[in-house]
Structures are given as structure tokens and as C-alpha cells.
């Protein structure tokens, strides 16, 4: 199928700013779905609130645009009632890890089969560039005019310790890897988390004087390495990309079905 068959063309051009990385994630996601040959009738995209969350309006899948931070809770309801559907949950960094932090860790702990994509631009884009739990120490944002003194989460470490059975990271620069990791995350039979470093040139880029969208993507190229690369030993500040966790554990919906059978046998 052509990529345009997977989107609601009537809503294009989309609302994202010029160069916004969220559009590159949409691009990669559509390619992943296309190469996997998924039937769009079997996909549900559930999102919360944020520039990132607007992605659910553009895909021609079943979609649910819900409450800030609560996408995973709605997605859990959808998945439990129709476990045969592919559930994809794109979230902003604020959406996933500020207001939605508890939903995030508990969905990971439960190992319910769905794909959480953290669209990490390190800022609250939609509401005007406030700092987020992912902004990081020393960064600038509208609500920290003298510099941020909060430390950030590492999404990969957090997801791993919360129990996610698939954990990966990539960036909007690494577009082949992006589509490949989205495919693997969707195929995984458990809770998968994919962090995508994505540029918000309008707020994060401008406030932190990184330059335009292309310059921000150059930073992803320069500051990241594949897991296991020797460069990481030479320069510990480099951020690793790739698959960090991929393991099998009992999945929540299947376990739930087992409980129902057990209860019926009594």
C-alpha cells in the first residue's frame, strides 16, 4: 500500500511546526506498518495530550485521543477487551513521564502487550516550552529562565527497572533504525518501550541555542552510538541506541484469560 493510504490526508498539511521531529516519527511508523503488512483495521492508536499526541489524528487506524498522561490506561482497557488488536501508544516526554509517570511504570510492570513510543523532545512543546522531567540539568526552558536544576530520567533505565520486556532507543536522525525498531517493538509479545529522541526546534532548539531542526538532528548523529560500540568506552557521555531489553515473560491479557478459565472450572 502507498504510505498515503495509511493517513487521513484531509488533515494535511499537519499542525506541527516546520522541522518538528514528531513528523519524522509518524513517517517511520507508517513505513513500519507498511512493511509489516498490518491491516489498518487491526491497529488502535491511543494517545494523550501534547504536540506528540496529535499523531493519532493523522493515522487512518482506529484512534483514541484521550487525556494528558492517561493514554496507557485507556490503551489497557482497549487491549483487555480486544487482545487481538495491535495497540500503539505514542506519548510525549511530559505525557509519559511527568503526569503519566505512574501509568507508565505500572503498565511496564504488568507486561501488557502494547507498544509505547516515547517521543522525547525534552520539553512541553504544546503548552509553550516549559521544562519536562526529560529536559536535563543545565538546560533552558521558559519556566527555568536561569537554567534547569532538575536532573532527568533515563527513559531506557526507567523502563527496564519498571519491568518492560522490550526496551529500545533511537532518534529521528536514524530513520532506518527507527522503522526497524518500531517493527520489532510492535512484534514483541509484551510491553515494549521505544524512546525516540526528537527535535522541537521551536522551543527546545531555540531556547538552548542548538540551531534549526537539521542541526538538532546532527546532534543526535554526533552524540549517540549503537549499543556495544567502542566509542562509548572512549566517551561515556555518548548515548546508546538499539535494543537494551528483549525478553519473554507471561503477558497480562493471556494471564487474565487463564484466570477466567480457572475461575470457570471451580
Amino acid at each position: 500500500m502507498a504510505l498515503k493510504d495509511y493517513i487521513r490526508q484531509r488533515f494535511f498539511p499537519h499542525i506541527w511546526c516546520p522541522g518538528c521531529g514528531h513528523g519524522i516519527i509518524l513517517n517511520g511508523l507508517l513505513r513500519a506498518v507498511d512493511t509489516m503488512g498490518l491491516d489498518k483495521k487491526n491497529i488502535v492508536m491511543v494517545s494523550g495530550i501534547g504536540c506528540s499526541a496529535r499523531i493519532s489524528g493523522y493515522v487512518d487506524f482506529h484512534s483514541l485521543h484521550t487525556l494528558h498522561g492517561r493514554a496507557l490506561a485507556f490503551a489497557t482497557g482497549v487491549k483487555l477487551s480486544k487482545p487481538e488488536l495491535n495497540v500503539i501508544v505514542p506519548m510525549g516526554d511530559g505525557d509519559a513521564l511527568a503526569i503519566g509517570g505512574n501509568h507508565f511504570i505500572h503498565a511496564a510492570r504488568r507486561n501488557i502487550e502494547m507498544t509505547a513510543i516515547v517521543m522525547n523532545n525534552r520539553v512541553y512543546g504544546m503548552t509553550g516550552g516549559q521544562f519536562s522531567p526529560l529536559s536535563g540539568y543545565g538546560t533552558m526552558a521558559t519556566t527555568v529562565p536561569y537554567g534547569n536544576i532538575d536532573h532527568d530520567f533515563d527513559v531506557v533505565d526507567l523502563a527496564t527497572s519498571a519491568g518492560a520486556t522490550f526496551v529500545a532507543r533511537t532518534s529521528t536522525y536514524h530513520v532506518h533504525e527507527l522503522a526497524e525498531l518500531i517493527t520489532k517493538a510492535i512484534n514483541h509479545k509484551g510491553f515494549s518501550v521505544l524512546e525516540v529522541l526528537t527535535q522541537c526546534p521551536t522551543y527546545f532548539g531555540r531556547r538552548n541555542r542548538i540551531g534549526d531542526a537539521s542541526e538538532m538532528m546532527e546532534v543526535y548523529k554526533k552524540n549517540t552510538v549503537r549499543i556495544g560500540s567502542k566509542k562509548k568506552q572512549e566517551n561515556p557521555d555518548l548515548l546508546e541506541r538499539g535494543i537494551f531489553v528483549q525478553k519473554e515473560l507471561p503477558e497480562y491479557c493471556r494471564e487474565y484469560d487463564n484466570i477466567i478459565s480457572k475461575a470457570r472450572q471451580k
Binding site: 504510505l3 498515503k4 493517513i7 494535511f12 498539511p13 499537519h14 506541527w16 516546520p18 522541522g19 518538528c20 521531529g21 514528531h22 513528523g23 519524522i24 509518524l26 513517517n27 517511520g28 507508517l30 513505513r31 529521528t172 536522525y173 530513520v175 532506518h176 522503522a179 531542526a213 538532528m217
Partner: peptide, 9 residues
């Protein structure tokens, strides 16, 4: 690469 990286499809 231009096609894959275009945020606006």
C-alpha cells in the same frame, strides 16, 4: 533519505 526524513511526508 529525503523521503524518509521529511517530517511533513
Amino acid at each position: 533519505m529525503c523521503e524518509l526524513r521529511c517530517p511533513d511526508l
